[in-house]
Amino acid sequence: MMEEYPIELTINGEKIVSTAKAEESLLRFLRRHGFYEVKGGCEKGDCGTCTVIMNGKAIKSCITLAGQANGKEILTVRGLEKEESGRKLQESFVQHGAIQCGFCTAGMLMTAKAYLDENHQPNKVEIRKAISGNLCRCTGYKKIVEAIYAVAEENQKSK
């Protein structure tokens, strides 16, 4: 019998009560619970496709134990549209052509969201640094940076 421990967390506002294996990563846990939008690209923290926001901070879920999310609030890309800032980012990615194969997109958006929540006036260089933990093989990053920058600019204007 595999030993599992109880875990209770909030994912995109929904309470999940379940159990996890000791060594199970948050990534595996999320996917096992149907949160397929969280992608595994390397499972050792090298690519950032699995990025989610945990209690406001963007983290790589593949190098986070499921247990470390116990009692925490997790936001995945599917929870993004619940907040205006999230919707804006999604739409900006769409409009700027920042999405090609889309495999990095889910993680990239989460990093961008957490970053913009804390940094209101970033320039493009800062944005590049902020997303430097998320690999993208298709776009060359340019349009991603532009998409994030556009949202930051718009936020600035509306203030």
Binding site: V38, V77, Q90
Partner: peptide, 20 residues
Amino acid sequence: PIPREDARAKAKGELKYADD
């Protein structure tokens, strides 16, 4: 320069790739 047909589903995390 219009958004791609598949972009929105990808931005929302709704697109099911092979492993999903």
